[in-house]
Computed example of a mutant assay.
Amino acid sequence: MNDIADHGVRFGRIAPMVPVKDIGRALDFYTRVLGFTKTFENGNPVGFIILERDQGELHLTLQPTHKAAVFNVAHLLVDDVDALHAVCKQHGVRIIKSLQDKDYGLRAFVFEDPDGNRIDVGQVI
């Protein structure tokens, strides 16, 4: 009985934890550009924030010495990838991989947040 499903355990949401050097700058980006809403913060000064939008949830954690990874740290599925791509371009967000149809059934692109965290965005086609 090594299979967790055999025990009847169901998984709920999984929210990526995104490290940021400047939590105020990150909060501004994710709320102003991507439309998330802050639903929780902790610490004095604030060192942790929960953001939500529709069914998506993202956790920001203050890490002053953070060095961004060279790989994607989160994958976001949306219902209009072209619109989100346009918003990112309008706000001068750095696009790492251009918008294109992938052979695995997604239309996708990758952007960097202000801390260099790479977010892969896709829409099922």
Rank of each mutant, 00 (worst) to 15 (best):
N44A: 14
G8A: 10
L99R: 03
F111G: 07
I23P: 02
F11D: 00
D101G: 03
I119S: 02
N42F: 15
I14Y: 04
I50K: 11
V20D: 03
E57Q: 13
Q123S: 05
I49C: 12
N44I: 10
R94N: 03
D113I: 11
E41D: 15
D3C: 06
L51V: 09
M17L: 12
K89P: 02
Y104C: 02
C88K: 13
Q55K: 08
D6P: 02
P45A: 11
D54K: 05
Q90A: 15
G122F: 01
V78W: 07
A108C: 13
R107V: 02
I23Y: 12
A86K: 03
H66I: 08
G47D: 01
T31W: 11
I49S: 08
G105L: 07
N2G: 15
E52I: 03
Q100D: 11
Y104K: 12
Q63S: 04
I50R: 10
L76F: 14
A74D: 06
N2Q: 15
Y30K: 05
L84I: 08
I125Y: 06
I14A: 08
V73Y: 06
Q90C: 07
L106K: 04
Q100F: 01
H59S: 00
I4R: 11
A68D: 03
F11H: 03
F40N: 04
C88Q: 09
V93Y: 07
L34Y: 11
Q90L: 09
A68F: 06
A15C: 11
L84V: 12
D28H: 14
R118I: 12
T39V: 15
G8R: 04
A15F: 07
I125S: 08
M1C: 09
S98F: 04
L106A: 06
H59T: 03
V73L: 05
V93A: 10
P19C: 09
H7T: 12
Q123W: 00
R94W: 00
I119F: 11
Q100L: 05
I95Y: 01
I96R: 08
D80N: 09
D3S: 13
Q100M: 10
T37H: 10
I119P: 00
T31H: 11
I14L: 08
C88L: 12
N72I: 02
G35R: 09
V81A: 14
H66C: 00
A68K: 09
P16T: 08
R32K: 15
F48D: 04
F11R: 13
D22V: 05
F111Y: 14
I119H: 10
E112H: 11
S98A: 14
D28R: 15
Q90F: 01
L27T: 14
G56M: 13
A83R: 12
T31C: 15
D82N: 09
Q55I: 00
P64R: 10
V33H: 07
G12S: 06
N44T: 13
L84A: 01
L77H: 00
